[in-house]
């Protein structure tokens, strides 16, 4: 008797094994299905579209940090743009430094356009979509990224 030449099993053993096998297969499937419960079906979360005020409040060449919204709004000669201040490494809030942005948690550094210049961050800070509400206020949608260099002209 070897692994290549297994003993014959009789019908009763075969049926017992088959029923046991199907029982545990069903149990396993049910258990795996139960694991779907902790995976949220709806992702609750605050709306991440922020009204930041009327465009006149921001003079050309200015930059305004919105700490609670985790973004920085810039205005230059070409228009408005907003850069997220959530580090792309592990999600800490970056703060303004001499040469751009610096992360207090693991030392990622970005230039003032959000590009990585040092540290572990895998991606540049995302630029966020800027638009205007019906009443003329500037609106930043923090869930929508736009390519670097995109400006919003008033």
């Amino acid at each position: 008797m070897s692994r290549l030449d297994p003993p014959r099993i009789n019908r009763r053993s075969f049926l017992s094994l088959a029923s046991l096998g199907s029982f545990f297969a069903a149990l396993g499937t049910a258990a795996a299905g139960m694991l779907r419960l902790p995976n949220p079906a709806v992702l609750p979360g605050p709306v991440r579209r922020f009204k930041l005020g009327s465009p006149e409040q921001f003079s050309p060449g200015s930059e305004t940090a919105f700490a609670e919204q985790n973004l920085v709004l810039f205005r230059d000669d070409e228009g408005f743009y907003a850069i997220s201040s959530t580090c792309t490494h592990l999600g800490c809030a970056v703060s303004r430094s001499k040469d751009g942005f610096a992360c207090p948690c693991h030392g990622s550094r970005f230039d003032s356009k959000g590009s990585v210049i040092g540290g572990p961050a895998p991606r540049p800070l995302p630029w966020l979509e800027v638009s205007r509400a019906a009443n003329g206020d500037l609106v930043v949608n923090a869930d929508n990224e736009v390519p670097e260099g995109t400006r919003y002209r008033v």
């Binding site: 985790n70 948690c105 693991h106 540290g119 572990p120």
Partner: peptide, 23 residues
């Protein structure tokens, strides 16, 4: 949620991992 501590350090037993994570 607006401002982390600076530096934001984990308890001592995770600091070795935090150093590795900073790479």
């Amino acid at each position: 949620p607006a401002i982390p501590e600076n530096p934001a350090k984990a308890p001592w037993y995770f600091l070795g991992i935090q150093e590795l994570v900073s790479y």
